[in-house]
Computed example of a mutant assay.
Amino acid sequence: MATVEECRQALNDLAARLAANAEAQGKLDLDRTLACRLTDLGAAFHGRITAGRLIDITDGDDPKAKIALVITSDDLIDLVNGRLELTRVISSIRANPFDLLKLRKLL
């Protein structure tokens, strides 16, 4: 089981990778709040996806988030590090179908 700090770092790494790729990918029409709920740690983070970037990552849940990733800490680490495909955890993502398609392009 990964720690809360490892999960926080994974999200920050993902944010850095998305920021580096944002210009190359062009404008992605996705502006949504995001919550990442870690089921095995009882912890959560939230932020915002906008213009192909993940910004304002903060500790704590956002119950009104438009996109929610409900996942174990190890799966989050594996997903961010490319050892787990998004399609394998699609049932863990709560979002409307159009947002899911846009997320696939982003990740």
Rank of each mutant, 00 (worst) to 15 (best):
D59H: 04
L107F: 09
A43Y: 12
L86C: 10
V4L: 15
V89E: 01
T87R: 07
A95S: 07
V4W: 11
P97Y: 09
I90A: 13
S91R: 09
R94M: 15
I57K: 00
A44H: 02
T87H: 06
L103C: 09
S92Y: 04
A43C: 14
G52E: 00
K27C: 14
L84D: 00
N81M: 15
D59G: 05
H46E: 03
A20W: 12
E5P: 04
D78M: 14
G52C: 04
L69Q: 06
L38K: 01
P97H: 08
D40K: 08
R37P: 00
N21W: 06
D61A: 07
L54I: 03
T50D: 02
N96H: 11
A65I: 02
P97C: 11
L11A: 06
A16R: 11
L100W: 07
R88Y: 07
A22S: 11
D31N: 15
N21V: 06
R8M: 10
L106A: 06
H46D: 05
V89Q: 00
A15E: 01
I57H: 01
A24C: 11
A95G: 01
A20C: 12
L11S: 03
R8Y: 10
T50A: 06
R37V: 11
R83V: 12
D29V: 12
I55V: 14
I55R: 10
D56L: 09
R94L: 15
N12Y: 07
C36I: 10
T33N: 14
R88I: 03
D99R: 00
A65Q: 01
R104Q: 14
G60Q: 01
T58K: 11
K27S: 15
S73G: 05
L101P: 03
G42K: 04
A68F: 02
R94S: 15
F45M: 05
N21C: 08
